[in-house]
Write a protein that binds this DNA or RNA. Structure first.
Lengths: 225, 225
DNA sequence: CTGAAAATGTATCAGATGTTACAAAATGAT
DNA sequence: ATCATTTTGTAACATCTGATACATTTTCAG
């Protein structure tokens, strides 16, 4: 039995009331699948032919590296949808292996049926498109950040972003170690770069306060180290 | 005047014939905007409130290329759409500044009208969703590669992924240059690593065929160079 | 088949970052 | 205030990658 009230909280069905949703769902074909704790729901590489929405319980996405170790990527719990970005497009396969963290019920709507839903209801259409668009934008920003090759570039970008347009100083509320991890570099390397940036009169650091001495020059650095 | 025949080649309108398309377009509100060469069409940060499709001419966007390094000029010419990933979602702003490479005509469809189109025509709906989904998948894949620190790690991951569980050889249907761009590294660096991996008896390369000699060892390499 | 263009192999050098190690300084609990 | 712990500064060296250049091989159109 589907808990429609819970389902109205699913991002895909936002803005639709319980009665309306029930009527919509009953117009289409769907299945509800039940998996026990630790069952494998989908294996990385499996084709994605349905929209999956967690009705109860939660699942986790894991990548299995080639040494056999599993690395957890993310947890998804009710009433969130699964792999929405892989239902369409060129590569309709699960990017990760999905296993049940505990007993789960999963609503499974075939892609063709879901397309009908999208055409029938403008809320669902907008929600779904917003969902995958936001994901795309998120990835785009993340990629932009990683695309700064040098530590100096990452640091310049970080400082300018923190400072915004007006401020000329930034309070670091993290240790160098944490910042180094955010950038994916080692702590001594980050410290060295910070020292260099001070030598070059780009910034001064006092305790946790970083003063930006030359925002223009910092901006230039971003893209070429 | 809109060249509908050309417009049927737009990815968004694929699968729709000229007559049908003309009828669809005439059911909605739209504008055709004309820009002279070197005019600024949109500034990075401007809100995206319309779907823009180049009808004639071409525009260029300054953006950070996904393979990594610096600012690169992306050209978009007729009849391709513009900034499709930013029409919906949380951040509806141009990610780049767009300028006219030569005199251009741009079809401009308000987002509300475009939503109507999506609901009216299943081809357009599928095309558009496929378009943004593919983009999302592309970005996702890029990010995955960037998460491996060394080129050898990226290459090992790529080969094992291509080969899957059973195969012991992989056909490269890309050039080294394309592969290097996918990894965000330079072509000579990639070639050097490939040579090293052959020296180390991990793989052999003959033409476009790569034989994986030691999948276990390749797996170990992934996460520590 | 042939010649131009594209793709690949290789080398050298410079620069950026990781690794490791240790000392100095700051922090925080008592 | 004091001492243990955490954080930061710095150094020497190894390694990886980028940049650049050029020769060689492969591909493909004519």
């Amino acid at each position: 039995m589907i808990n429609y009230k819970l389902l109205t909280n699913c991002p895909i069905f936002k803005g639709i009331n319980e009665i309306e949703l029930k009527s919509l769902i009953n117009q289409i074909h769907y299945q509800v699948r039940i998996h026990k704790k630790n069952d494998v729901v989908a294996i990385a590489g499996d084709p994605v032919k349905n929209l999956y929405i967690i009705l109860s319980g939660s699942v986790k996405g894991e990548m299995i590296d080639y040494s056999g170790k599993t690395i957890k990527i993310e947890d998804i719990d009710a009433p969130r949808p699964l792999a929405t970005a892989f239902l369409f497009g060129k590569e309709n396969t699960f990017p990760v292996t999905v296993t049940a963290s505990n007993d789960v019920e999963i609503l499974s709507i075939p892609v063709g049926e879901f397309l009908n839903l999208l055409q029938k209801n403008k809320h669902i259409l907008k929600n779904y498109i917003n969902n995958i668009s936001s994901r795309s934008q998120f990835l785009s920003r993340k990629l932009q950040f990683l695309s700064f090759k040098t530590i100096k570039g990452k640091m310049a970008h970080y400082l300018l972003q923190q400072a915004g347009t007006h401020l000329h100083s930034v309070e670091l509320n993290t240790t160098q170690q944490q910042l180094a991890e955010l950038f994916g570099v080692t702590r001594p390397s980050l410290a060295r770069v910070l020292a260099e940036m001070q030598d070059e009169k780009l910034i001064t650091i006092e305790r946790k306060t970083v003063r930006l001495l030359d925002k223009g020059e910092l901006g230039k650095i971003i893209h070429h180290g």
